[in-house]
Design a protein around this nucleic acid. Sequence first.
DNA 1: CCCTTATTGCAAATGATTTGCATCACTGGA
DNA 2: TCCAGTGATGCAAATCATTTGCAATAAGGG
Lengths: 137, 137
Amino acid sequence: MDQSIWIDKLKEKGLKATQQRLAILEVLVEENFPLSAQNIFSKLRRNNPNLRLSTVYRTLNSFVEKKIVRKLDLIDKESFFELLSGEHHHHLICMKCGEIIPIDCPLKDYEEELIDNTDYTIIDHRLKIYGICPRCR
Amino acid sequence: MDQSIWIDKLKEKGLKATQQRLAILEVLVEENFPLSAQNIFSKLRRNNPNLRLSTVYRTLNSFVEKKIVRKLDLIDKESFFELLSGEHHHHLICMKCGEIIPIDCPLKDYEEELIDNTDYTIIDHRLKIYGICPRCR
DNA sequence: CCCTTATTGCAAATGATTTGCATCACTGGA
DNA sequence: TCCAGTGATGCAAATCATTTGCAATAAGGG
């Protein structure tokens, strides 16, 4: 990973470019996939025994706030976090094996309609589709 | 509320028609709106000091399992529960005042497409749209 | 009306996430 | 390059919604 790009990005958003933040970013970039705080923590801890789960949470929360990552509530308890890059999209989740597939967003026209009908200002939306993948079926 | 309908419905689903279950159902029917476990608990407790929050949770979970109510994760922490009746729909939530508006489901065609593209069996989906209502804006 | 079994009260546990505080590491300026 | 100020982190403890174990209770079929 080219750290300098990320160092700049962090500074640009008013965040110090610390070791822990860069390590967490590196995992998110390399996986390029939704991960839980615990996931990230486990991956990093062996080479970084001082890292705490609370630091991972604090970091992810600041990343969410600065729109560097997006928080997803895919399954009941644990939240997942994914890097905000590439196309806006949603997820299809296999209820048996937990596979997560990115899917594109079908809501553009629908939101226009909604604005006309409700006079709301639309800020954001969440869409998740649950099913069973061909292998688990 | 005509209790006998609900007593039958519970029995039909293999649940005993207990006082607490009927009380919880009554609140859900009268509000006809998504409520949290704590919401329901607070409404009932004054006339029912023995009721426990854990009973409300257990009841709601069994209702979800039997498809009598639907669980919604609208805001970060607390889950909401709403009676499963009427049209399948989703929710538009005002991020300032918390107003919740039911909206209809735009996903039928999209799911067909998804089945063709992914070979998944689609079980369910969740859609929430967040915005600011005209009054709060 | 009784017996069986599901349900509830109650208290304690759980698990993800957050927080308080002292220490440490980053960064911009000298 | 070094230093001070401030934000970030380690650490431990707290929080908060939700769940669970167990003994006591209530529902409902016979």
